[in-house]
């Protein structure tokens, strides 16, 4: 299903206004105290950002998600959480779009489908916007993503003068363009393809410095390398990189119970926390920073690709920008290259 469209600035305003008025509302990047963040908004105004500080992951895989409420008195009774309302997330960059492909591979395909995630996904229409510039920390092309990729988007937009050229990528995207046909004009498919091709040519400077030849083979073979100790000795052991990562999906499930009633919820957890794999008896298979750092990066670059044929890193660069001590994916790739 393909449908190419043109969207003027006014048309976009109209489209997003309608989305904001719907039950689930609109999520778009806004600036708060100088920080670009995805937030529920009434209208979207910002288009000049490189990317948001935090990924939009929270809107399809919430940091805290109530699974159900329960009562144990007088008898056990469950109350299912309400289904998520239909929502539009606007302004997602190709790296974060790709994270949807990765999260879907874990949680919404194959034998084990996560109902909660699948519900959030099917309630969310994602409008991607191609990049017009790269930040100093971006490295998507090294991870096989380009600044013009549409995978993961429902509707993909390419900035074009004052407006956008666009393509409905999925059925949800086509439904959106059909439901708001008044906002869109038809566009020449060739023009849209040209805009996409132009966006794909953008190469972030950091990506050019990364040698990713044979990356998967290299990381299948460096378990004992000294690079892990080198990176780990700097690591603070906080969860910053995992919580800013668009593709990290580890969570814990816990109950909060009071006076015979409670909530079961799942909350993001982080493999960088010392208690992440601590077992009931107190044994911790990853007792030190070295084991935890190795786990995180091998998960991204070795275990995940082995299972799902994709790197679990999209090169969004948030870890590069925000890790206070310089432990991040490009750092490990470069350390590995130097160690050979």
């Amino acid at each position: 299903m393909t449908e190419t469209v043109r969207l003027t600035g006014q048309g976009l305003e109209q489209l997003l206004g309608a989305a904001a008025g719907a039950t689930g509302g609109l999520v778009a990047p806004v600036t708060e105290d100088g920080q670009v963040l995805f937030r529920p908004v009434r209208e979207a105004r910002r288009f000049d950002y490189i990317n948001a500080v935090t990924p939009p992951k929270d809107f399809w895989f919430p940091q805290t998600e109530r699974l159900f409420k329960f009562k144990t008195v007088p008898a056990v009774a469950l109350e299912q959480a309400a289904d998520p309302a239909q929502r539009v997330v606007f302004g997602v960059r190709p790296c974060d779009l790709k994270s949807l492909v990765i999260l879907d591979a874990v949680m919404a395909t194959g034998e084990f489908e996560d109902d909660y995630y699948a519900q959030q996904r099917s309630a969310t229409t994602v409008i991607g916007v191609a990049c017009t510039g790269a930040g100093p920390h971006c490295f998507c092309t090294a991870m096989g993503v380009t600044p013009g990729d549409e995978a993961g988007a429902d509707l993909m937009l390419y900035p074009d003068g004052d407006g956008f050229l666009g393509r409905a990528v999925t059925g949800r995207g086509a439904a959106l363009t059909a439901a708001h046909a008044g906002c869109f004009a038809a566009a020449d498919p060739a023009a849209v393809a040209a805009a996409a091709a132009a966006a794909r040519k953008l190469v972030p400077p950091l990506a050019g410095r990364l040698d990713v030849d044979g990356l998967r083979e290299r990381f299948a073979d460096n378990w004992d390398s000294h690079i892990w100790g080198e990176a780990a000795q700097r690591c603070l052991g906080c969860g910053l990189c995992t919580y800013l990562c668009p593709t990290c999906y580890c969570f814990g499930v816990s109950d909060e119970v009071r006076q015979g009633q409670g909530v079961r919820m799942r909350c993001w957890d982080s493999c960088m926390f010392s208690d992440f794999v601590r077992m009931a008896g107190g044994h911790n298979p990853r007792p030190g920073k070295l084991e935890r750092v190795r786990q995180r990066f091998l998960h991204k670059l070795r275990y995940f690709p082995a299972r799902h044929a994709e790197l679990a890193c999209t090169g969004c660069g948030r870890c590069v920008a925000k890790c206070p001590v310089g432990v991040h994916v490009p750092e490990l790739i470069m350390l590995d290259r130097e160690a050979r």
Binding site: E32, L236, G239, Y243
Partner: peptide, 16 residues
């Protein structure tokens, strides 16, 4: 509350 609503509870402040 506006400030705290941005917190992602990564505990970097505590760990450093």
């Amino acid at each position: 509350q506006g400030q705290f609503s941005r917190c992602i509870r990564c505990y970097a402040c505590r760990n450093v």
